[in-house]
Design a protein around this nucleic acid. Structure first.
Lengths: 243, 243
DNA sequence: TCAAAAGTGTTCATCATACACCCATGA
DNA sequence: TCATGGGTGTATGATGAACACTTTTGA
């Protein structure tokens, strides 16, 4: 429920400078182009065992060797922010073609080299990921609650991403990126519950997602255990949409 | 109306590595810290004569001399992003203490020096601004519809900011930053209408903003013209809040 | 008395929420 | 036949949207 909606029926037509901060008085110095170290980090979420998890990497080098941190790295001159984020995501999980969105740009996170950190967040289906295992920078899934201690204040980034995810769940179809091709509505509901941290009503949940047309039954069933088989559903669209 | 809400009554507990991209194969090069030029730009909105306006500056130097662009500049080493944005805002309008929020971080906007542009957006009451007039970089208000041609693809930034503003209007109290201490509800409604680009219903609008408790009557009246005087209202809080 | 803007209430449709029982299967 | 999870319908309250007339003032 949007708190401020008072529409009427009718709709009306719609319509490089460089400054040096010194003792409060900015002072121009032409010709000189300052540059800073910029990093890109990616908060990669998945739902595993009915819990929201985030991918962290154990740092094999200084600074903060041995601590957990988000996958990321310094931005290369000439590289696009989106490209850097996609590369990190694919390097660590092997997946591409999932929901990935810029989150926020932080300043001075911890005592890393990067002065500016552009964060992204991604949603992956646990079933499709193949974590890198050979390397010395071991990635691993960690529950978000509680978030383990992280280097470079990465917990702030994770908390921000989680908030954004919770909001997006409510007004978009981004869950598609956390679920396989076909899935049961119970699984879908558990995914919502894991992220929102509260239980939903089964009947209301089903009425909603089917009624909004974001999923449709496939006609196939999943048999498992000694109980009635469950209908498998699929998303009508696997692109991010506002509902 | 949030499309996906199926709550139950019960609530369950909730709760720098460097890589070089070369022919697809990232390659680590320890020791070297690449850096890039980072700029901060601010989309400063106001409502003037019932229209949403944005502050643009006529560039006095190359590149793009003589074209209109958003206020901004390169980030200084050691300067905080928020601080840079606040400084730009104050330099151009003379106001501080208004709503200012990070918007998005862009890549390669036009052919400026900056490879990474961190954008902010701000909302100011036209009555409090004193535009810089002495300098060679002349700032001026421009209607957002239609947006004049801008340097560095700044129109993309403005369009993004406008979308964010429209969304924020609906679920926060950020309008406070566009209005003076005391104002009539008609003025407030016109502000909404200017931004949303559509007419609102007077009775519904008033019931809502008063009912939500975001404004309260002051008991003072504004007399003007040959008609009934209007009650002056004030915001119950002048801090950003989610409604 | 007229023009101009201020102010005010009700109806209806939609939708979020709460809630409990039967069904299909394999052990 | 029993245990397990799958599947379904209805009643109520809240809220967004539509809609028109009276009031106050100064000219």
């Amino acid at each position: 429920m949007r708190p401020l909606q008072c529409r009427r029926n009718s709709i009306v037509g719609r319509p490089g400078e460089y400054r040096h901060q010194q003792q409060g008085r900015p002072l121009r110095r032409p010709g000189y182009t300052p540059s800073v170290a910029v990093a890109v980090v990616v908060v990669i979420f998945t739902v595993r065992q009915d819990r929201l998890n985030v991918l962290l990497i154990e740092r094999a080098a200084e600074p903060c060797k041995g601590e957990w941190a988000l996958p990321g790295g310094l931005l290369l001159p000439g590289e696009t922010l989106d490209a850097a984020a996609r590369r990190k995501l694919e390097d660590e999980t092997g997946v591409s073609d999932v929901f990935l969105e810029q989150l926020y740009t932080f300043d001075r996170l911890g005592e890393g080299k990067a002065e500016v950190v552009v964060s992204y967040f991604a949603l992956v289906d646990i079933g499709r990921t193949r974590l890198r295992s050979e390397s010395e920078w071991r990635p691993a899934w960690h529950p978000v609650h509680p978030t383990p201690p992280t280097a470079f204040e990465n917990d702030r980034v994770i908390a921000y991403a989680e908030e954004r995810l919770r909001n997006k769940l409510e007004y978009t179809n981004v869950v598609y990126s956390l679920l396989p091709e076909r899935f049961t509505l119970t699984r879908m509901q558990q995914t919502y519950e894991a992220i929102l941290g509260e239980r939903l009503d089964k009947r209301n949940f089903r009425r909603r997602v089917v009624g909004l047309g974001i999923v449709r039954p496939t006609g196939r069933f999943e048999k498992q255990g000694a109980h009635r088989p469950a209908m498998l559903y699929e998303f009508t669209s696997r692109k991010p949409m506002i509902l």
